[in-house]
Computed example of a mutant assay.
Amino acid sequence: MKTKSLLLGGALLAVAVGHGQSGYTPRDTSYSIHSTYLKVKKDHPAVRPVYARSYEGVREDTNLVYASVEARRDLHLDVWYPKVRAGLRPGILMIHGGGWTTGSKENLHPMAQRLAAEGYVTVTPEYRLSAEAPYPAGVRDLKRAVRWMRAHAEEYGIDTSRIAAYGASAGAHLASLLGTTNELSRYDTPGTSNAYSDDVQAVLNIDGIVSFVHPDAEPEWSGKSANAWLGDYVLNYPRWREASPLEYVDEATPPFLFVNSSYPRFHAGREELIKKLNQYNTFSKVYTLENSPHGFWLLQPWFEPTVDHAVNFLREVFGPL
């Protein structure tokens, strides 16, 4: 895919061109592994960024079209999978963060590759951000990505009964929303066929909120990112509540893993969600990486502990490979 760069409002935008699209589709990619590294190293000078690399035994298929939306806009994803097929394996949809306004699927390539090296089939999708289409467009896109995984399960050796949603920051909120809206049609894309389920059987929440209306989420109420995605908090309060995963927890909600920094802002609603899970005897685990910044999953020394917590949780929930 070709790209053009535009300087808009002080932010560098990577603009996708082609793939059957009409005109330009701006995407703010200013939030990246490198930008996170530059920000964090001011207070943690020993940190190291983790970039994409090749792993022996892992194959990749990149920039596959998984859906088309308005104005012939194609949505793309990348797949990482073991070269040697040994039965069906769990699939993991990996959702990048960026405050619903910025970021790219490439930010989670290092983690997707690492988990694929552990034997999982990992998928990193793009989804529409707020500048292109506000809530609920991105949620609908990600639901379609789960359906794509089931539609291509035979090709990649995915066990359709073991699909997890992994998300970081805003992506963690979105992964949580996928998991708590299993069996609901609210985020179905109008006019599309739903031959495959969009349910997920586990959620890995890496430092993301699960309620926009919880008191700990107050920084979001006046923040530019959430307001760009959901609209003004006061005028659109019902939408903010509707977009909160905590509102949907029931007996159909799958197990949850939380891997968190020490910043309460990014835990909004977590304890209440766990209490609800406990009412249904649904498994959950929480790990806090002490003194870690938001964005820790992109950097060493926190990248490997995040991998370990994810793999251990997946083994507990899905069993051994």
Rank of each mutant, 00 (worst) to 15 (best):
P264W: 08
V69P: 00
A133K: 08
M149V: 03
G269K: 03
P264L: 06
K4I: 07
R144K: 13
S5E: 11
L64Q: 09
Y81C: 02
A153Q: 05
W229F: 11
L77E: 01
V317F: 04
T253N: 03
L257V: 04
V47Y: 00
F212K: 01
E60T: 15
Y31S: 14
S176V: 04
L177T: 02
I206H: 07
V50D: 01
A168G: 07
A14C: 05
S197V: 09
S211N: 07
A11K: 10
T124L: 03
T180Q: 02
P45L: 06
V213A: 10
V15L: 09
S161M: 10
P219N: 07
S22F: 11
P301Y: 05
V79Q: 06
G167K: 05
E271W: 10
R48W: 00
V47D: 00
S292K: 03
I158C: 09
R89S: 06
Y280C: 02
L184K: 12
D250Q: 03
T25S: 14
Y66L: 07
G119M: 07
D141M: 08
G208F: 06
L277K: 04
S262Q: 12
L230A: 08
Y248W: 15
G103P: 02
I95S: 03
T101V: 13
K275N: 11
H309Y: 15
K41S: 04
V50K: 08
T306W: 02
S244A: 14
Y24A: 07
F266W: 15
V40W: 00
G179Q: 03
W229D: 01
G138V: 05
Q279S: 08
E70H: 14
G99F: 04
H109A: 04
L246F: 12
P190N: 09
N281P: 00
K143Y: 09
S244Q: 09
K276S: 05
A195D: 14
Y287L: 06
V146L: 03
Q279C: 11
A226Q: 05
K143Q: 12
N312K: 10
P45Q: 06
T192C: 06
D199C: 08
V200C: 08
P254G: 04
V259E: 04
L75K: 01
L174W: 13
H267W: 15
F296A: 01
W148K: 04
V249Q: 01
G87W: 15
A310P: 01
F303A: 12
H109L: 10
A175I: 10
V249F: 00
L115A: 07
E316W: 08
D250H: 03
E155T: 15
N312S: 12
Y287M: 09
